[in-house]
Design a protein around this nucleic acid. Structure first.
Length: 617
RNA sequence: GGGGAGUUAGUUCAGUUGGUUAGAACGCCGCCCUGUCACGGCGGAGGUCAGGGGUUCAAGUCCCCUACUCCUCGCCA
């Protein structure tokens, strides 16, 4: 009896399968007890498996023995049952005092139920530490500690099922388009620059370390050199950096590299991939090609390179205006700000119809101060045209005020918000402020798409950025990005002016992928290194194998990597990356379920020639 | 590395100015119930108020430290 189910009595249907058409069939279901409604004689159980819920009924008239044992059933016990499908039909409701329909429209299986005449309890369950339910949501800490239970919850299962589908669709699409799925090592050689690496000590090579790949970047270029032409991989990457809502220390990329292509060829492939995913998962037609936006336009209007275009609230540059007027502007704090190096002034208009209160604005000030801003400059344009709540502009000239009104297009009743100071700081604050206000005004939801999918490419960023600390130009992304042909002339004279074939694909304010056309000309490569202050010898030491490879007939090539976790998060409207990763890590990189990272004993460390310098607590 | 929020029953939370026995909902246990479906009714159990130190006649409440969780700036070529 104990082994009759499974070995002899096989499952005939899943818990999401039965419909009215199955009425009368004898079926075998396996699943977990989602819910129990014991009426003393009749007992209703919602039986759950990954496909859905089916109501099973224990009626003493139909299976006395099963009914007796059903009384002890509790949440999360796992069962096999044999029974007959029947219509729920019309039933006499005691509560309502009349005959009503007993179907449940909330369930896909709601027209039917299964009357049980035989049951095997495969396993009992302790009372779970939190309810496995969509209605009661436990905190993340509790859910991660018992992730195997959390993973039973419908929303998480749905997200992971969707992710599985995305993987399958991606593979099919890429293969169809001539891409080969090729693997690359996780354990490689440490190369400087970029994200901090996780290191793995080598037992066979005392004192030496592997670095876990932060991406397959170098290897995929080597595939191009080798002539594979089109490569892709759904691959884990590792970065030992601070975690965020949309960042985990190990994450998955759809990694792509192509030979003999322009930037637009790469875009077309990725647009097609996204179109395929959205069509097949959500049934939504994403229009292509995506909008292209110049990097400088993005920084100017949105303060970052991943603008959320679902709403307006664009930034307005006031730097030139303030500079031009100088002391005549009469607002000393602004003219002082633009006088300093990289000093800028920017504004954002919140239209009168949104009616931000004084209290709202004060809250926003606290918000920006949390990002290092000194305050939140503001000016409310009253119905009579007065500038109120505007201490910044107490002594400002009409020329400045009118100039600002003209530049911003602010109308009576509107509120203008200002930031000024160092460019990078102003951009960070203004970018976050814009999104914060949009959420506050419900122009976008706290999380999720709100049904609007706004894709775009951010293109033509600078190849270099100036590192103030090192007093040296540094690669804005990496040193192997191809500069625009008409910018190559500035490599020596004005490196800041050099734009490059680098691109990011952005969805609703999240960077979901980025890549570049690679530099395959040894001559230009050498000039780029020179601009970065990297000599031939140093370059050889750092990137020798790649530079060697490029000398043996490297084809023009380029690629991109799509953040699979972020894509899944956005596509499923999840609140966090952690909701689309089966076993995620906390913000400190720990796993609350396994306790990783954990201690190891001295002997293990000795074998690895490693000694901890951590102070015992 | 910096800033912010939080930690009270199994879970999610409330807890007033520091004042007698720390509450609610859900869950759990028991009894009752033949049409429920987040069933219902009656009854019950359940607390190291994160940990440590301090102030006080008196601390869940005030102060300091530590730990953990989340958000965020820096960081993430």
């Amino acid at each position: 009896m104990a082994t009759q189910f499974i070995t002899q009595t096989k499952r005939t249907h899943t818990c999401g399968a039965l419909r009215a058409a199955d009425i009368g069939k004898e079926v075998v279901l396996f699943g977990w007890v989602q819910n129990r409604r014991d009426h003393g004689t009749l007992i209703f159980i919602d039986l759950r498996d990954r496909e859905g819920l089916t109501q099973i009924v224990f009626d003493p008239d139909l299976g006395k023995e099963a009914h007796e044992r059903a009384q002890q059933l509790r949440s999360e016990w796992v069962l096999g049952i044999r029974g007959k499908v029947r219509a729920r039909g019309q039933q006499m409701s005691k509560k309502e005092g009349k005959v009503v329909s007993a179907t449940n429209e909330k369930l896909s299986t709601g027209e039917i139920e299964v009357e049980v005449f035989e049951m095997e309890i495969f396993n009992k369950s302790e009372t779970p530490p939190f309810e496995i339910s969509e209605h009661v949501k436990a905190g993340e800490e509790m859910r991660f500690e018992h992730r195997y239970l959390d993973l039973r919850r419908r929303p998480i299962q749905q997200a992971l099922i969707t992710r599985s589908k995305m993987n399958a669709l991606t593979r099919a699409y890429m293969v169809e388009n001539g891409f080969l799925e090729l693997e690359t090592p996780f354990m490689g050689k440490y190369t400087p620059g970029g994200a901090r690496n996780f290191l793995v000590p080598s037992r066979l090579n005392p004192g030496k370390f592997y670095a876990l790949a932060e991406s397959p970047q170098l290897y995929k270029q080597l595939f191009m050199v080798a002539g594979f032409e089109r490569y892709f991989q759904i691959v884990k990457c590792f970065r030992d950096e601070a975690l965020r809502l949309d960042r985990q220390p190990e994450f998955t990329q759809i990694d792509v590299e192509m030979s003999f292509v322009t930037q637009d060829d790469v875009f077309t492939i990725i647009e097609g991939l996204i179109k395929t995913l959205w069509k097949n998962v959500l049934g939504i037609d994403v229009p292509t090609p995506f909008r292209r936006m110049d990097f400088y336009e993005s920084m100017s209007k949105y303060g970052n390179d991943k603008p959320d275009l679902r709403f307006g609230l664009e930034h307005v540059e006031l730097t030139e205006l303030v500079k031009k007027l100088g002391a005549e502007g009469g607002a000393a704090m602004l003219s002082d700000a633009v006088a300093q190096k990289n000093g800028i002034v920017k504004a954002m208009v919140v239209p009168a119809k949104y009616a931000l209160s004084r209290k709202d604005t004060d809250e926003l000030e606290v918000f920006v101060q949390g990002m290092g801003a000194k305050g939140l400059g503001r000016a409310k344009i009253s119905e009579t045209g007065e500038w109120t709540q505007a201490p910044l502009f107490k002594t400002a000239s009409d020329a400045l005020k009118n100039g600002i009104l003209e530049a911003t297009g602010a109308q009576k009743g509107d509120l203008i918000l200002f930031q000024f100071g160092k460019e990078s700081q102003v951009h960070t604050v203004m970018a976050n402020l814009r999104v914060q206000i949009a959420k506050k005004l419900k122009l976008i939801p706290e999380y999720g798409s709100g049904g609007v999918w706004n894709f775009l490419w951010v293109v033509n960023p600078p190849l270099f950025e100036f590192d103030e600390e090192a007093n040296q130009w540094a690669a804005a992304h990496h040193a192997f990005t191809r500069p625009h042909d008409d910018c190559v002339q500035y490599l020596e004279t004005d490196p800041g002016k050099v734009k490059c074939h680098r691109y990011d694909v952005v969805l609703n304010g999240f960077e979901i992928g980025g890549g570049s056309i690679r530099l395959h000309s040894p001559e230009v490569q050498s000039r780029v290194f020179k601009a970065l202050g990297i000599g031939d010898e140093e370059a050889r030491e750092k990137f020798g194998f790649l530079l060697d490879a490029l000398k043996y007939g490297a084809p023009p090539h380029g690629g991109i990597a799509i953040g699979m976790d972020r894509l899944a998060m956005l596509l499923t409207n999840a609140e966090s990356l952690r909701d689309v990763i089966p076993f995620p890590k906390t913000q400190k990189g720990t796993d609350l379920m396994t306790g990783a990272p954990g201690d190891v004993d001295e002997k293990q460390l000795r074998e690895l020639y490693v000694k901890s310098t951590a102070q015992p607590k």
